[in-house]
Design a binder for these strands. Structure first.
Lengths: 250, 250
DNA sequence: ACAAAAGTGTTACCCTTACACCCATGT
DNA sequence: ACATGGGTGTAAGGGTAACACTTTTGT
């Protein structure tokens, strides 16, 4: 471990014991879509090559949802990001291989029970920034993730599964796409999340039928070919539709 | 508050501080189905009229899933109950009105972040039993719940929503019904969970088509009318079918 | 001209919904 | 006899899947 990270951990340890609830952490799987691929926001500890989820601790007098928002704001600069809590991880050995060379009573070496959220954000609304423990924070494509610490790889996979299952219940498109987007972009997003290709014409009709889109009187110019029409979500109809799920059968 | 509960709390407080992780609790919404109605297992503190979810704390060296199983076994005598973690509750004020007349440093008066599970169990496989803090533990019908403490009413409602949404992804029938059951019982269970009535003939065909049931060469005798056929689940096919959900459309 | 985008048509197929009918059987 | 359960038939309707064809339009 780098001397620098070593010193920072020791310096922060005592401070943290007074500020945060012990044994509890929050990790977020932040999804971003750039029109092409789905990305996850990852950071890496100073001097380490492995990546990890952005996370943090819960202040002694703070709702856990507020913690998640606060931590995310520190990493992205963005407020009001869509967050959905999906699972809490509490295996005893889940971080046993971290910080092995540091003293046992180090704050960061406790046993942690981690409450995991997935976040959805417009790709360009975010400025990834490091915190005091990390020297990088960047988007990584879901399709080819780098090496990842501890159980965080599994957490990302769980988040993806929940995202997929929530597609008809949560405003996924609304939060991952820019305010104005094209039908091919929306379809690409669905294809990525569902991991299957969809028929264009059928997708167009299905989306149109839901009545959650509003076609704008604009097109996206500058592409190589015909300028596609721009749409935005009718948030009122969208949220109303989600109340019962977009396509339930029972 | 009764003197008895008062004394028990004070006596347990110091002991608990050495045994359990602070600030973390586990609550379970235990569902049981008696062929007629869906029930939830609730307990009440000694001398209190309000009810609460059975819960407990996490040992310092214990996986949270193991905690949930251990706590449930203490309340029901049953092992290997089906458990599904569905949400973690961490609002700061969620238990602020409990134990107001007791000292601030009482173990039970901490701020708790509670990891909630729902459990599914065969109604008759359970012997509700009290713990040291409670003087009753009993099944209560979901349709008409008694008065409930803190945010536990909301937790039950959330559990029901998750149960409903999981109906096609988790072995709900398998865990709530006795090993041998009739088609009307299965249908009744679905109707209760989905809160809507279903057409009998169509339900029969749908279930048959899934290929997850095995018809036994027995009938349930003793009823007032024709003895209904008994079925059991083909667990192999059932679990295989759940891998992809029983009826997904995308 | 070319390639992408938009919009529509068509067909087969499956599942759902709703009703209906008949048979079996325990009291 | 009667109520419940079991099993099947059917017709309408809606959504899906797969394919095809046309038109539009930016470079």
């Amino acid at each position: 471990m780098s001397q620098k990270l070593h010193d920072i951990l020791l310096a922060e340890s005592e401070k943290n014991k007074d500020t945060y609830l012990p044994h509890i952490s929050i990790d977020s799987v932040v999804f971003g879509f750039n029109g092409e691929n789905l990305h996850v926001l990852l950071t890496s500890l100073i001097g380490k090559s492995q990546w990890m989820l952005p996370g943090g601790y819960v202040l002694k007098e703070e709702d856990i949802n507020s913690s998640a928002h606060r931590i995310l704001k520190e990493r992205t600069g963005a407020e009001n990001i869509f967050l959905s809590q999906f699972k809490t991880y509490g295996a005893t050995q889940r971080s046993e291989d971290a910080f092995t060379e540091l003293p046992e009573d180090l704050w960061h070496k406790q046993r942690y029970i981690s409450i995991a959220y997935y976040a959805l954000t417009r790709y360009d609304a975010v400025n990834p920034r490091t915190d005091k423990y990390s020297d990088s924070c960047a988007w990584q494509p879901v399709e080819q993730l780098p090496e990842i610490m501890m159980d965080h790889k599994g957490i990302i996979e769980d988040a993806l599964m929940h995202l997929r299952r929530d597609l008809n219940y949560k405003p996924v498109g609304l939060n991952l796409l820019p305010q104005k987007f094209t039908m091919p972009e929306l379809q690409r997003l669905y294809e990525i999340i569902l991991d299957k290709s969809l028929n264009r014409g059928n997708f167009y009709r299905k989306m149109t039928r839901y009545n959650i889109l509003e076609k704008l009187n604009e097109t996206r110019r500058g592409g190589a070919h015909k300028a596609p029409d721009l749409y935005s979500f009718n948030t009122e109809n969208y949220n109303a539709a989600l109340e019962n799920g977009l396509q339930e059968s029972w």
